[in-house]
Amino acid sequence: MGVGHAHRLYRHGPSPVHRLPPHCKIAAVLCFVVVVVSTPREAVWAFGLYALLLAAAALAARVPARFLLGRLLIEVPFVAFAVLMPFVANGPYVDVLGLSLSEPGLWGAWNILAKGTLGVAASVLLAATTELRELLLGLQRLRMPPLLVQIASFMIRYGDVVGDEMRRMRIARASRGFEARGVRHWGVLAQSAGALFIRSYERGERVHLAMLSRGYAGTMPVIDEVMATRAQWSYAAALPAAALAVCVMGWTL
């Protein structure tokens, strides 16, 4: 939760990870996250290995560490939540730096921090190496309902348009001397939200008519069908497979 999401998470580059078909990458990231989440939290070293695996993947994708770490900041609200855990959880208490903290709470906080951070890092890596349109095509290849993919692609395509519309309305308000300072100004902002909805909906109607006039009948033609070769699948599977090995070790050791 928080203020506006930073846009342009995609980082263009000529790496082999960028060239992988999107559905391989999505499947790989999903499997990786599932493996990470199912790792026992007591195996602290396993999470270090996962981080190394992700770092290796980032290296292969030529995504700079600074970029990746900067994007991790989206996690900050959960960090705040995780920090609270040792104070509210039950169980045996241990003394840390003079504070009496719950031991299960500390494990819980570690659990959320480690798994959450790895999950965010994996998603950021996926978004950094895959274009929006490719990502949607990949989801479609993974059998997401076509209508859902279409809705998502419209959302992505017009997200910037609607966002810019909102920005222009903000500039218009500001140039008339409006400054939102407190609850008293919610009425004006809500008017803006209402106007934004009407403009968005009417734009949707116009887009629909424009599409109808170009022969749209409910499905989008797939122009560039991406097929994955066996080699590409196995390349993408390297990350979750290595993670699975770590996970098995974490359970057995």
Binding site: L147, Q150, I151, A152, S153, F154, M155, R157, Y158, G159, V161, V162, G163, L196, F197, S200, Y201, R203, G204, E205, V207, H208, M211, G218
Partner: peptide, 10 residues
């Protein structure tokens, strides 16, 4: 698709 997509964008 277009209408739900635009509402989602909103």
């Amino acid at each position: 698709a277009p209408l739900a997509g635009l509402v989602a964008a909103f």
